[in-house]
């Protein structure tokens, strides 16, 4: 157990460093939330909604964390494929989930750059006041959201191992999750089918927690829900990873790009 934790921690630091140094990754995952924040802010200003623009900044920022997780996890697996190292990882003695978990956690962590830059951007360009109602809870909510998203990334990564067209999934899931988890449009206003889906996605609860910590409300039960879902993803992800790795070996798709 201790070794597992150590492997996770070491892997996490390793990947955070690696991702931070990838200019391509950081720029593309930070840029999208900025554009989204700008677009949504203009729309909010032009519209009749009375809410604060901080709502928009936060929503776009969490979108950035999701973007980072999605493209980081999918991209990492795909990158391993292209380099021919996916086979090597699977063949290594360490449990596969312990190799992938630090990676997905790292991708979610690096998403914090997005959150920070979106907030700063909002403040610089739109004069969004960065005033937190519950600052301490905010500081708790953000890592909780990161954890929840990182573990959702783990579930995703498992499908990427099996499915050689993982990039398609990464490309496809950006907007759906943005839409369904109510990052910028409240879930209550979404079509009926979206609501149950939103309940099983950690970003929904994580966003609520962050939002309530910043804008007022009680974020604690949302925080708890985020972590609970995260734990479920961990179990699901582990099971899927082992099985999908085995299937991929069976179908001889590990070496294919």
């Amino acid at each position: 157990m201790k070794r597992a934790l150590r492997l996770t921690a070491v892997g996490w630091v390793f990947h955070v460093k690696g991702l931070t140094m990838s200019g391509f990754f950081v720029v593309t995952t930070t840029f999208l939330p900025l554009v989204l924040a700008t677009t949504a802010s203009y729309m909010a200003r032009a519209g009749q909604r009375q809410g604060t623009l901080l709502y928009v900044s936060l929503g776009a920022g969490v979108m950035g964390i999701w973007s980072s997780t999605l493209f980081g996890s999918g991209g990492a697996i795909q990158w391993q494929r292209w380099q021919g190292t996916l086979e090597l990882i699977v063949a290594a003695p360490a449990r596969f989930v312990l190799v992938i978990l630090p990676l997905t956690l790292a991708t979610a962590t690096v998403g914090i750059y997005s959150l920070a830059s979106t907030l700063i951007w909002g403040w610089l360009v739109f004069g969004v006041p960065f005033h937190l109602v519950h600052p301490f809870l905010f500081v708790l909510a953000v890592p909780a959201a990161v954890l929840g998203l990182g573990l959702l990334g783990l579930v995703l990564a498992s499908t990427f191992v099996l499915y050689r067209y993982a990039n398609a999934l990464s490309n496809m899931l950006e907007f759906p999750v943005l839409f369904v988890t109510g990052l910028l449009v409240p879930v209550a206003l979404l079509p009926g089918w979206a609501q149950p889906v939103s309940w099983v996605l950690a970003p929904t609860w994580g966003m609520n927690a962050i939002r309530q910590a910043a804008l007022g409300g009680s974020p604690l039960d949302d925080l708890a829900m985020t972590l609970l879902l995260g734990a479920c993803y961990l179990v699901l992800g582990s099971v899927l990873l082992e099985n999908f790795a085995r299937l991929a070996r069976d179908r001889a798709t590990l070496a294919l790009t």
């Binding site: 729309m43 990039n167 398609a168 496809m172 899931l173 907007f175 839409f179 206003l189």
Partner: peptide, 22 residues
């Protein structure tokens, strides 16, 4: 997924965002 399904949600998202902002 990339060129057809993803963009469906892009349209949905912005339409709903537009409605939300009136």
């Amino acid at each position: 997924p990339t060129m057809l399904l993803g963009p469906i949600f892009q349209i949905l998202f912005f339409v709903y965002l537009g409605r939300y902002n009136g």
